[in-house]
Design a protein around this nucleic acid. Sequence first.
DNA 1: CGGGATCCTATATGATACTG
DNA 2: CAGTATCATATAGGATCCCG
Lengths: 124, 124
Amino acid sequence: MSEYEHTCMIRGDGGKTLRAILDQICNKWTLLIVATLDQGTLRFSDLVQQIPGISQRMLTLTLRNLQRDGLVDRAVFAEVPPRVEYTLTAVGKSLIPPALALAGWAIEHVPHIEESRKAYQSGS
Amino acid sequence: MSEYEHTCMIRGDGGKTLRAILDQICNKWTLLIVATLDQGTLRFSDLVQQIPGISQRMLTLTLRNLQRDGLVDRAVFAEVPPRVEYTLTAVGKSLIPPALALAGWAIEHVPHIEESRKAYQSGS
DNA sequence: CGGGATCCTATATGATACTG
DNA sequence: CAGTATCATATAGGATCCCG
């Protein structure tokens, strides 16, 4: 039943490699931006509108990181007013299935987790 | 090619539900602890030894959260010296496959990401 | 329109010392 | 052994204003 032979992928080098990547992915906005860009190419203002609550600052920062890591392409058009379009790269798209796996797990277990939290509260 | 129909799982309610759970999972130690506990039942001191760099404080805090969320069982034995054993619950174990999926993605793309970072640096 | 620059706060994490 | 308590710090994230 145990998957111990495989969890070395997580524990690996003490989890360093994995966590370095995970830190980039599991911040507040990355998955949301990637999931939104799965629709296709979008402009900066499109992303602001479609991602509720994100600030310009965090959108810019997160997009820069995604671009730096090669998950997103950034195309600037020399027009007035300026136009900048963002598109998922192949690597960016490849992140979606594992992200969905985690999202599926989370959504599937939300009821159990919330129940457990209530029981824990009343217990202590 | 697009998985847009499915990414609503991520975007859902603006990502709120997913991120509430993700915040618990993607902190510095949670996945490492869960992966370590996949071996089976372990004592507090076992975890300290097997997880390099973790402090007693963070191990305690993270274990409490996992226990509260029903991912880990905590068993206290009234002995001297005290013995406390931690075990993954079924829900806790169920987190491992999606975690492995993400870990697999990360490890598979580390080379590409590092390459992209170097290119980004020299570009700017 | 698409940011950059600046300031600010909350929180996660760490170090250390103490205890039943 | 398995924590708790306290203090300190780094950083993520947010608010606001300005610019080409």
